[in-house]
């Protein structure tokens, strides 16, 4: 393992210190906790808290700021934060209007955030939650934990954050977040696995000529392993799965996110985007807005995911609403 680290036990803490030192105008750390909150602290509106394991930067601390999240909780690498940490974030951002927790659909995240919500409710804080589950690679059935929450979660942060910023109630913000969740779909692919610092070795093996389709954002093995193909062929495969599930009609409008997994250069992400846009144009689906870059990474994984979000008038307005955070800006 070759990484810029000092001590595997201290990776998350030193990263958070570095983030606050780099961006004091955006975020502040809750003293003694792995929680980043808006530098302007409590704002008189519904507050949004998200979080999860570290290793997905800029998720989630990078989306704390005007128009998106109020607080982000960072667990150990790929490990859900604990209830006491999430509880601290809820208390730090609650301005009396209630707090919406945006949880990615993982067993651990749900348990820890639910325990935190129970603690907060016991203190009289109004809490609601939504669970993102945009990954079409995983069957949503009785026989799985359900779809994983992956890069599409960033659209939930953006749009629900804009709704809250506009002064909507907790119930309204939650309803908008759920509308995004119902309309967002993602699928990913990995070319090289990632290495959790504390594990010291890659989470799975891929030979030089193989790719893992349907990869999760924690280096979980995907759903299918195949010989590597051209960028266009890979996009065709991923888009077929996404479009089959989402079934957009000609004339529908979508937002596109081509998300890098951490070790994929922008050059390759743009090559993927080219083909995505061709496919959508062929189907008569109108692209309203495109985002290309690292939004929900998996440490040093080489890979990418494609996210489509079907939009209506409300979602379009909220997507374009002003946002100013470390990792996502809309002017």
């Amino acid at each position: 393992m070759k990484k810029f680290i000092n001590d595997v036990e201290n990776v998350e803490n030193e990263m958070l210190e570095g983030i606050v030192l780099a961006h004091p105008e955006y975020v502040a750390r809750v003293e003694g906790f792995d929680v980043l909150v808006r530098a302007d602290k409590k704002v008189g509106k519904v507050a949004l808290v998200s979080g999860g394991g570290s290793g997905h930067e800029p998720s989630h601390g990078g989306f704390v700021g005007k128009g998106m999240l109020d607080g982000a909780v960072a667990g150990s690498v790929f490990t859900s934060p604990t209830p006491d940490q999430v509880f601290e974030a809820i208390k730090a951002v609650d301005a009396g209007e209630g707090v919406l927790l945006v949880i990615k659909n993982y067993t651990g995240d749900i348990m820890n955030f639910e325990m935190a919500a129970e603690l907060a409710e016991a203190e009289g804080i109004k809490v609601a939650n939504v669970v993102t589950n945009d990954d079409v690679a995983v069957e949503d059935s009785l026989y799985t934990t359900g779809r994983r929450g992956v890069a599409g979660t960033v659209f939930v942060h953006k749009i629900a954050g804009a709704k809250a910023e506009a002064g909507a109630s907790l119930e309204e913000v939650k309803a908008t977040a759920e509308k995004v969740i119902a309309n967002v779909r993602t699928m990913g692919v990995a070319l090289k696995p990632c290495t959790v610092p504390a594990a010291g070795k890659p989470g799975f093996e891929l030979s030089e000529d193989e790719m893992e389709l349907g990869i999760g954002i924690h280096g979980e093995p995907g759903t299918e392993r195949k010989p590597i193909q051209t960028a266009d062929e890979i996009v065709d495969y991923l888009m077929e799965r996404i479009l089959k599930d989402m079934d957009p009609k000609a004339g529908d409008e979508v937002a596109v996110m081509i998300n890098g997994a951490g070790a994929t250069p922008p050059m390759e992400l743009y090559i993927l985007n080219r083909r995505v846009q061709q496919i959508l144009a062929d189907k008569g689906v109108k692209v309203f807005k495109t985002f290309v870059g690292d939004y929900m990474t998996s440490i040093d994984m080489a890979g990418a995911s494609i996210t489509l979000l079907k939009l209506d008038a409300e979602l379009k307005d909220l997507l374009l609403a002003q946002a100013d955070t470390i990792g996502f800006k809309m002017y």
Partner: peptide
């Protein structure tokens, strides 16, 4: 354990 393990194992 709840406050130090994290993941699913911590709550469980």
């Amino acid at each position: 354990l709840v406050s130090t393990v994290g993941g699913a194992s911590g709550p469980l």
